[in-house]
Structures are given as structure tokens and as C-alpha cells.
Amino acid sequence: MNSMGRPVRRGVGGFADGVRYVLRGLGWVARNPRQWLFGLIPALLALVLYIVALVLLGTYAGDLAAWATPFADGWNSGLRQTVRVLLGVVIFALGLVLSVLTFTAATLAIGEPFYEKLSERVEQDLGGLEAVPEVPLWRSIPRSLRDSVITLGYALMFTIPLFVLGFVPVVGQTVVPVLAAAVSGFFLTVELTALAMERRGLARKQRFAVLRGDKAPALGFGVLLFLMFLVPFGAVVAMPAAVAGATIMVRERLAPGPAAQGHAPRPVHP
């Protein structure tokens, strides 16, 4: 049972619930196209920054590979070039992986006021918010950045070993992609649910505890979004819906509060 007295489904059922929250987020922005456009602004800005960074990485990947392999200077030119080209490809591939892992955190950091307002509007549309103290931006943004860096550190603890294992024959093409999607999806959910959970007074450790205690919907929600974000421009287009879906999931399942249980809501002004 959750705090609303409703039975909490785990396993496959809970995973499917997480998938449905993504679909509900998509449905919400489809009914509120202005909010979708509103949420695109920081995602587009983050996309431009990431494209510039990846172009620079691709341009200088060969130089980075040469800098990292001074021991190969004395090798014959064919072997030296092969090793450095392969290393350059690995460096760029790692950059792509990191871009997928960090795009959500960077977009949320850039668009904190945008997504906070969008999340509040979702809650208002569903019945209102509990009365909680508002945190000024000069405190909330640095805290969000710090939490995102810590979350990224945890994600890298899993992602880097999985990236290396991806080069192992058979296992790297079967088991590793599934594990990578699960890990990346879970941490996407961590980032996206932060706004709604912080509104309920939950600090980072408490948010992790809530998600670990109900992993199935967190995985269902995050894995589907991870796959959507792999599609070119998918992360930009889907980010407003991801914030909306995460807000609905927190409100109804992960950390429902008085407003979700029919008590008096706090009005939110547009």
C-alpha cells in the first residue's frame, strides 16, 4: 500500500505503470501545447550547447588520442594510426554516452524556472499543491546543480564499467545494452522527479530512498524515456512531457501528498 491506501504493484505491473506515466505526460502536453512550447526553450538551448561540444570533440578526438598515447610514437605508422583512430572513436563514443547521461540534468539546470512552473501547472491541473515554503532561486539552483553532479557521479559508477564491457563479444551486444538502459533510465527518473519531490520537502537522500523502494515504475518510466532520448532530437521534443509525466508519477504514486488525497490545494497562478 502507498500513503494513499492504494495497493502498489511491483514487478512487471509496476514497470508498466511507469510506462503509462510517460504516456500520460505526453497526453498532458498534447492537451496543453503552449506548455509544451514553453518547455522547449531550455531544451533547445541545451541542444545547441551539446551539438557544439560534440562537434568540437569529434574535431579534436584524434588529437586527444595522440596526446593519450605518446608511447606509440615509435611504432610503425600503420599500427600507430590504427590504434589512435580506434581510441579516437572510443573517446567520441564515450562523449555520446555522457551526453545522453547529462543532457537531462543540464536541461533541468538551465531551465529550472521553466520546468518548475510547468510542473506546478501540471499539479494545479490535477487538483492543486500542498502549501509548502517556497525556496528562492538563488538557493534552489545551486542545490539542484550539486544534486545533479552527485547523481551523475553515481551514474558513472555503473555506466563506465558497462561501456567497457560493451566491447566484450556476445555479452557486450546482448546483456550490456539491457543493463545500460536500466541504469540510465533509473537515473533519468531520479533527475526528472526531483522537482516534484523537492516541492514535497524531500531532500536528495530521501528521493533516492523513495525511488529505490519502488523501482519498477521508476525503471518503466526511465527506460522508455531513455529509448526516446536516443532518437535524434527526441530528448528535446519529449522533455516537457517527461517533466509532466514525472510530476504525475510523484503526485499519484511515489510521494502523494494531501492535495492528491482530496485535501485543500494551494492555488498556483500562471
Rank of each mutant, 00 (worst) to 15 (best):
S3D: 15
G5I: 03
R9N: 08
V12K: 03
F15V: 06
V29T: 04
Q35Y: 14
Q35L: 14
Y50S: 15
A53R: 13
D63S: 08
F71V: 00
D73F: 04
G74C: 01
Q81P: 02
T82H: 01
L87A: 13
G88H: 00
V89S: 13
A93Q: 10
L94G: 07
G95S: 01
V97N: 04
T102L: 15
A105H: 14
A105C: 06
L108H: 15
L108Y: 13
G111N: 14
G111R: 12
P113G: 05
P113I: 01
E120K: 12
R121C: 00
E123Q: 12
Q124G: 00
G127K: 07
V135S: 07
P136R: 06
P136N: 06
P136I: 10
I141K: 14
R143E: 05
S148I: 05
S148C: 04
T151R: 04
L152M: 09
M157K: 12
M157G: 14
V168I: 15
P169C: 06
V170C: 04
V170T: 13
V171M: 08
G172P: 06
L179E: 04
A180I: 03
A182D: 02
L188D: 11
E191M: 07
G201N: 09
G201S: 10
R204G: 03
R207F: 07
F208L: 14
P217K: 05
A218Y: 09
G222D: 11
F226Q: 08
F233N: 10
F233Q: 04
V237F: 14
A238V: 06
A241N: 07
T247R: 01
I248H: 01
V250E: 00
V250I: 04
A260K: 01
Q261N: 11
P267T: 11
V268W: 10
